[in-house]
Structure formats: structure tokens, C-alpha cells
Design a protein around this nucleic acid. Structure first.
Lengths: 203, 203
DNA sequence: GTCTATAGCCTGATAGAC
DNA sequence: GTCTATCAGGCTATAGAC
């Protein structure tokens, strides 16, 4: 890494292993709660070796967050203004819920950051996130004006989708403490779909 | 505190100041991210003085959580089986949202704990929380069986209320980054009320 | 590139004067 | 009861051998 050469296979593999281990540990304990030692053990490398690939603990965390926001917003980016409104929104909800199910660690990493005031990604939120949401809200407003979906506050509609879907990954322990047997996502999927059908069906 | 005497006025005042400061710092930085020094500064006392009132940092955190779960569940506890179903549920939603608005620090303290796997309150969740939710789900199922509200998965209905209301305190930064001017809670209140009216109106 | 050993800081907790 | 001073442990990061 010291040189600006293209990384070798081993370097790529180690970097990926470190980032995966870091995701595991940061998402479970938060930035301060995580230790480089834990990450090293999880990655199967020594602590100084981690700091050979990344200049600091902070840098590992930053590398994770950097890639994350983009990926995280992909489901919303795919909302198609040319599609059938109800189908588009329900498809977005499904993509978002599936993301929570498949990538709970990423969701919790993000949640950890947000609940503590997003010190490291505040700028990206008010720039990239806001721009994307504003754009998609315009689409939603168009659909509402045409009477193709019911009229509700479009920003809160989007917040509700985030909140309902991520709840099952971020607060997973709580959900499982109450629903001790069943896979929470199965019931959640039907419930949330019904919810948006009833909320948004044109009057 | 060493003696088992009734606390003096000053002792009560200091203890309360410490707990308030601890809530401030723990909710903003999580358990590991918070330092006793920060709490001491916030409380206007010296670090050893804090540890005169509480045996450890852990004990301050435990004292906060102990009181919290009960208070946090009061709005659900008040759901009255003898009331009008739709009114009862909407009133619960309103109480919960108001709690998020008035006590965002408490909500974030809880969120911090949950997102990291609830290591310190897991037992209380699967005991007290589960028992209360089970009880209230029975009421909801009764109302659904009588056709007084629409039939939806009752557990997920409760999860949705938690998720939608706490989102505005827990992920406050994100909401404000997108909605830069307005007070988020105003729009949220109307949106959420509409949502549950449409979801639960009998067919 | 990877390791062992260690420096140096931060932080929770204690000792002891007042 | 409250403070100043300090200890002890854990942590990030670096030095230096291989």
C-alpha cells in the first residue's frame, strides 16, 4: 500500500478481509466500542498488519462508511418515474426490506453512526442524501397530483419506509425478544406491503 | 451513600444532576464512547465525586436503564381494552410520538443499547417487554376478531408504532439533514395518524 | 509483508488531604 | 462530601527484527 502500484491478489484479499472484519466489529460495538485487536482476530491477522493496510482505526471506519451510503441509497435511486406508481413504491419497499435482511451489519453500522449524531457523515447526508430524496419526492408529488396514489406528506412517506424496514435489522434483538420463534422478516414483509397498499390506494 | 440513611437534599440533588449528565453523555456517545470525565464536567462535579455517588461508570448506566424501560412502556400499558379500538390505538401512537419528542435522549440511550445487541437489558426485554406486548396483542386480536379494526399482524403493528415514532428522535440528524427547515414532529404526527387510520379502518 | 515488543496516551478507579 | 494527585489497565500506533 505504501507504493501507488496496483494491489496484488494478496493485498486485495487482505484488505477485503480486514474490511469485512471491521464491519463485523464496528457494527456490533460502535466505533469507540470496537478495538483494533478484535478486528485483527476476526480478520485472522496481527494488529500491526492491519495498520500496515490502513493508517489508523479511523481510516478503516471511514473506508467502510464511504462505500456504504451509495450502496444504501441504490434501492431509492431505482425508483422509476415512468413506472406504475403503486408498483414502484412497493418494489422500493421490498428492495429496502431485503437489504435489511441481507445486510444487517451494514444497517447497524449506519444506525450506530446516526444515533450518535452522524459526526463522520453529516456532510454526505445533507448533500447526497438530501439531493436524492428531494429528487424522488418530486416524482411522488407528481403521482399524487395526478391522483395515481393518495396524497400524503412525501418526505414522511420516505422516512416511514426507512424506519419500518431498518427496524428489523437495527433493533433485531428487541424484535426477537418479543417474537421468539418465527423469522421476523416473513411477517414483516406482508405487514408492510399491506400497510402501503392501504395508505396509498387512490381514494 | 455509604450509610443506609435516607439521602439528604444535597445528596438527592447531586444524584439527580449526575444521572441527568450521564443521560446526556451516554445517549450522545454510547456506553463506551462516554467518559466519566465528560459526565463530571456536564454535572459540574469532580470525577472522584461522581464515583462517591455511584460505585462505577457501569452503575450510572445501569441506574439509568433500570428506570427507563418501565417509563418507556407506560404508553403501551395504558392501552385500554374497554376503549374504542381506533381511538385507543391512535392515542397510543400519539403518546409514543410525544415521548420521542419530549425525551429524545432517553430514546437514544435505548437505541444505542439495542443496536449493539442490548447486552445489559436483554433479560428485561424477553421478560417484561415480551409479557406486556403479549398481553396487548391479545387485546388487538380481540378487536380484529370482532371486526372493529382491520386484521393485520398484531406484533408487527406494534413494531411499526415503535419504529415510526422513535425514528424521529433516534435518527433525528438524518431527518433534519433532509428536511432542513420545519419541525419534523409536526408533519410526522399528521402522517402517522393518517397511516394508521387507513391501515386499520374496518373493511 | 508480517511479526513481537513496546511506547505513550487515555480513562476508570483509588488514596488521602481537607 | 469534595477535592488534587496518582495508579493501573487497556488501547492505538510505532519500532525494528525477520
Amino acid at each position: 500500500m505504501a507504493q501507488d502500484r496496483a494491489p496484488t491478489r494478496i493485498q486485495r484479499k487482505n484488505r477485503a478481509a480486514i474490511l469485512d472484519a471491521a464491519l463485523e466489529v464496528f457494527s456490533a460495538h460502535g466505533f469507540r466500542g470496537a478495538t483494533v485487536d478484535q478486528i485483527a482476530v476476526q480478520a485472522g491477522l496481527s494488529k500491526p498488519n492491519l495498520l500496515y493496510y490502513f493508517p489508523s482505526k479511523e481510516a478503516m471506519h471511514a473506508a467502510l462508511l464511504e462505500g456504504l451510503l451509495d450502496t444504501w441509497l441504490d434501492p431509492l435511486r431505482d425508483l422509476d418515474p415512468a413506472g406504475e406508481p403503486m408498483d414502484e413504491i412497493l418494489a422500493y419497499v421490498r428492495r429496502k426490506l431485503q437489504m435489511s435482511r441481507e445486510f444487517p451489519r451494514e444497517s447497524r453500522l449506519f444506525a450506530n453512526e446516526l444515533v450518535q449524531g452522524a459526526p463522520r457523515i453529516h456532510d454526505a447526508l445533507s448533500r447526497d442524501l438530501k439531493a436524492l430524496v428531494d429528487e424522488k419526492v418530486t416524482i411522488l408529488e407528481g403521482w399524487m397530483a395526478q391522483g395515481r396514489i393518495a396524497r400524503v406528506h412525501p418526505y414522511h412517506l420516505i422516512f416511514s419506509i426507512w424506519s419500518l424496514t431498518q427496524h428489523y435489522s437495527d433493533f433485531d434483538v428487541q424484535v426477537r425478544a418479543v417474537l421468539d420463534t418465527e423469522d421476523p422478516f416473513d411477517g414483516a414483509s406482508d405487514f408492510i406491503e399491506t400497510l402501503y397498499r392501504r395508505l396509498l390506494s387512490p381514494p
